[in-house]
Design a protein around this nucleic acid. Structure first.
Lengths: 416, 416
DNA sequence: GGACTTTACTAAAATTTTAATAAAAGATTA
DNA sequence: TAATCTTTTATTAAAATTTTAGTAAAGTCC
């Protein structure tokens, strides 16, 4: 196994300026090959402004280290076919963990972003304190063992979670809070795993997945909305995931939208989430059912009404239930008003709608479009497309893979 | 004069890879010295990861080209004092133009950002068509001639203007619109001036000025609000001025804020500008005066009321006029609600208030703070400071200097 | 005043690039 | 269809550039 991603302090400290620059260059090549796939020597020369012999020398070193391999030859339009250099299959692995409030999902992915284990789900409660950490770590270690991969080749662990995650600081300010003055959540996890660990807010993570693997691929200014029980926002601005000064940017669900509106669970009144979210949808449905509205949901028992889920309302709408359709349209209009604000402020080229509510596309999207037409300036709305995510449930777990791949190379570079 | 910023195609085309890399490096050094001031050889070595002999060689070339000079020696903490290298005084000049709806301001600045001419103001009307362009160009050429500077040393022209400016595309989509299919406004201006020209929206330009010369200096996530007749927003995110996909980001004045509100001049209803701007302030004042409110502004004649200016209301407030104070507080509350949305979405470390309304600081800022306390999540508002610009009226004209300096070097690099 | 730092400069050593060449592959032509 | 031409890649050796190491000069601190 190579020392390229070894992260041993003694190894890095022993490098002089030239060796370090070469090391940086090699890591950049590895990241380039990961993001863009197999490339020719000429491509790498052009991309990094180095000469062919230098590039070849570095690629040969990477081959010797077992990270890169020749992967056949590329196309030619009248000359010798170029050798293709790509990341060697199964040379790198990432452990991806997606934590929700009441369950966690784990999987190991290889450098082609393919899962090498099935996605394991187990129940867990994410609370303010750290009790969930040990459980997740234990499950994760069991998964690594069961997978049979060489632990040396596991380059990092990505964990996404709900709450206000300060990714750079390495802490979650809502859940899994560490005691004051102690090591950060990230440090704690890195100590446990003995690997680089990256924590990220769930929606920001999904946003990165859309950027690397989804509809945002190749675009530079994209907003990703995740609509489940609450509403979250992730943003790719100028080709980068933006987190704001403290890492809390994108708290879209709690912008004021309704004057003297309902009390939100966050303690404020009239937040967007009180009128445009899964919870608002369910609450409105419950109130309507109890008020005797004409809907197939009247068939539910009182306790079933109490336990009503977003999916049930969406299913009713797909069945043609006008009450459910109206509720979804109302949510769509409110969400659209919020999206209009986003378009005015961010001027994105694309907005991707994800999360459970995305399944209600035919009932929600027209309402969103209508609101945008009302509340957006022409020049801005004309340059923004609105689409529904194609990654679906995978966005989250792929997101933590992307988070690791995005940051693990930089970590190596920062150390120097 | 050096050929470093000559921009002659033939010169650039004749460079091989090594020469080009050196050229890029030298331009980067020049920009570094411009942005950071005089630096030591060691600083440049560290900043660009090159060795001392290489760095010295390039600095000597820049000295020979007349762009750089030795500027004494720096401090030492126990060793030989280092030579300081800085941009030679009066070696570069920028023509800065600030266009408002009914007047334009022009000045020439040197590489120390000091005006080498006074700021010239002349009346002009910026309309949808191009008629203002010739007038501005003529005035500008007269100013260059009168200044007596070597035209060779004028490296670029920066022009800021109101409207939806697509800076990269080089067009203004609101004013000074070029015919379809014709050259862009930027190209037209570059042809007339024979120099690189950069156009930018006035508020974004002022934002860049705050970043380079004002309170945003050294910060990475800052929002700048410009409050005059309308309200504009510029954003520094992760240390860069962000413009959005089409260049129209920051249309804060026209986000929906009031349900079924007043008709805005943009054609929509309930825009933030209808309740939180200089025009809203004046309109409310006019309505109050005519309704007989108890205020010193009752002394105005009917035609003076028609012509009421923002400054008059602010002056009344400073005189202790409670009617004016209440009006400003109301505007502040509404603006604060809008700012709360911005904080939730962008999580900035700093918000700078600029424009005419900034003079009403003691009456507006407490109201803004109050609104933020109501509408912002604790973790977000705690990490955001709100201050009033210290650049004042200079922000705009300095902004176009910053715009040129920000882009002119990149232009040279892109050519290659 | 001596010890220790830091800078500035030079020359040898190391690295990278360019140029040159051979091989490989498609395009063109007989 | 075969031979030739053109284009592109891969590799090597000479040339150019950059770096490291070494040294003298210039400061600061004790």
């Amino acid at each position: 196994m190579s020392s390229l991603l070894a992260l041993e302090d003694t190894f890095l400290a022993g490098l002089n300026n030239v060796e370090r620059r070469k090391y940086v260059q090699k890591i950049k090549i590895v990241k380039h090959l990961y993001v863009k796939g197999a490339k020719t020597n000429a491509d790498i020369c052009g991309r990094f402004q180095i000469s062919a012999p230098t590039s070849t020398a570095m690629l040969n070193e990477l081959i010797a280290e077992g990270l890169v391999e020749k992967q056949g030859r590329g196309k030619s339009i009248g000359g010798r076919k170029p050798e293709l250099y790509g990341l060697r299959d199964k040379s790198l692995f990432v452990l991806s963990i997606h934590m929700e409030k009441y369950k966690a999902r784990l999987a190991i992915f290889d450098n082609n972003n393919s899962p090498v284990t099935g996605v394991q789900t187990f129940p867990i409660e994410v609370t303010q304190d750290l009790q969930a950490v040990d459980q997740v770590h234990e499950q994760a270690m069991r998964l690594i063992e069961a997978s049979g991969i060489d632990p040396q080749k596991l380059i990092g662990v990505g964990i996404n979670m709900p709450g206000l995650v300060a990714s750079k600081e390495g802490n979650n300010h809502t859940y899994l809070r560490v005691p004051d003055g102690a090591e950060s959540l990230q440090q704690l996890l890195e100590r446990k795993f003995g690997k680089p660990v990256f924590i990220q807010n769930d929606v920001k993570s999904a946003t990165l997945a859309e950027y690397r693997f989804g509809l945002a691929h190749g675009r530079r200014d994209v907003l990703v909305l995740s609509m489940d029980w609450g509403v979250g926002l992730g943003m790719i601005l100028d080709g980068k995931l933006r987190s704001g000064a403290s890492g809390f940017a994108g708290e879209f669900g709690h912008i004021p939208l309704v004057e003297d509106g309902r009390l939100c669970h966050c303690g404020k009144r009239g937040c967007l989430e009180t009128v445009a979210s899964g919870s608002a949808l369910v609450r409105n449905a419950q109130e309507g059912i109890r008020a005797g509205e004409n809907t197939q949901l009247q068939a539910l028992s009182e306790s079933e009404i109490d336990q009503l889920e977003v999916e049930q309302v969406i299913r009713a709408a797909h069945d043609g239930d006008q009450f459910a359709i109206n509720l979804l349209a109302e949510v769509g209009l409110n969400l659209g008003k919020g999206i209009a604000i986003l378009i005015q402020l961010f001027n994105p080229e694309l907005i991707i709608l994800g999360g459970d509510m995305a399944q209600a596309k035919p009932f929600v999207v027209p309402a969103i479009q209508q609101a945008i037409t009302i509340y957006c300036m022409k020049q801005l709305r004309e340059n923004t497309r609105i689409v529904v995510s194609e990654l679906g449930r995978d966005a989250m777990i792929l997101g933590s893979v992307a988070t690791v791949m995005e940051n693990v190379f930089e970590t190596h570079l920062e150390q120097m």
